[in-house]
Amino acid sequence: MTDDVEWIDEEAGPVVRPYAMTGGRTRASSSSLDLLSMAVATGAPIPAAANLGLQHRRLLGLVRRARPIVEIASDAGLPIGVVKVLLGDLLDQGLILVRSPIPAASVPADSLLKELISGLRAL
């Protein structure tokens, strides 16, 4: 075998395995990171002691406004599991806020909404 073998072409770009981006971690440090949870940057300065990589900083740029985690993963082009771990790191550093979606139990029942519409029409 020679050393002249190229495993990927230049158009493919750099290949980094997901576990390398997360330091081998597969779970986020917080259980509040649901697919539909909204994440937004706090605007706090990045602590000098924070061990943030390029992907962490990239995600911070994507959450300047509140966005669902699933949308962040799509725009970042990363697997959702990786994004959850990286966002968990940012949450631990106080650099983002995460708000869970409204539980289905707190949404009004369909029958109540239909009665409301009927009452409004009667006015």
Rank of each mutant, 00 (worst) to 15 (best):
L90I: 11
S29N: 03
L112S: 10
S100F: 08
V83H: 06
L120A: 13
L112A: 12
V16D: 00
V40D: 05
S37Q: 01
V16K: 12
E6Y: 12
L90F: 09
Y19S: 01
A12F: 10
E11D: 12
T42F: 01
A28C: 13
G94Y: 00
L36T: 06
A28T: 06
G119P: 12
D34W: 11
T22D: 02
L33K: 07
L36F: 03
L62Q: 02
P79M: 02
V107Y: 08
A49R: 14
V98I: 15
I69F: 13
I102N: 02
D89F: 06
G119I: 04
A48R: 15
S74F: 14
P103V: 11
D75K: 07
S111Q: 12
L35H: 05
L87V: 01
R64L: 04
S118Y: 10
V15S: 13
L52P: 13
E115M: 10
V98Y: 14
A12L: 12
L91V: 00
A49F: 04
R25H: 01
G53V: 05
V5N: 06
V83Y: 05
L59E: 06
R27G: 09
P47L: 09
V40L: 02
N51W: 03
P14D: 14
E115A: 13
Y19G: 02
R17G: 04
K84G: 05
V15R: 15
L33D: 04
G61A: 01
L91Y: 10
S31A: 14
I46V: 15
L52F: 14
S37W: 06
L87G: 00
L78N: 00
V83Q: 06
I69A: 15
Q93Y: 15
L59W: 04
R27W: 05
A12P: 09
K84L: 07
L87W: 03
L116V: 12
Y19N: 02
S106T: 13
A12I: 10
P18W: 04
T22K: 03
I72Y: 09
I69V: 15
G43Y: 07
P103C: 03
R65N: 08
T22R: 00
R17N: 07
M38D: 10
P79E: 07
R64F: 00
V5C: 04
A20Y: 10
L35D: 11
A50P: 10
L62H: 09
V107H: 10
D4C: 04
P45G: 15
K114Y: 03
E6M: 11
S118F: 11
A28S: 15
G24K: 10
Q55M: 11
G81W: 04
A104I: 10
P47T: 01
R67M: 07
R99S: 10
K84T: 00
R17E: 15
L62Y: 05
K114Q: 00
V70Q: 09
L97M: 05
V15D: 15
A28W: 01
I69T: 15
L59A: 08
I102T: 08
M38K: 12
A20Q: 10
A73F: 07
D110W: 06
L62I: 06
G77K: 08
P103A: 08
S74M: 14
P103D: 15
I69W: 14
E10A: 03
E115I: 01
G24F: 11
G81S: 11
P103S: 13
P68Q: 14
W7K: 02
D9C: 09
V40C: 00
I46P: 09
P45R: 14
L62C: 08
A39L: 02
L33V: 11
A66D: 06
L35G: 03
A76E: 00
L120Q: 13
A50D: 09
R99V: 02
G24E: 01
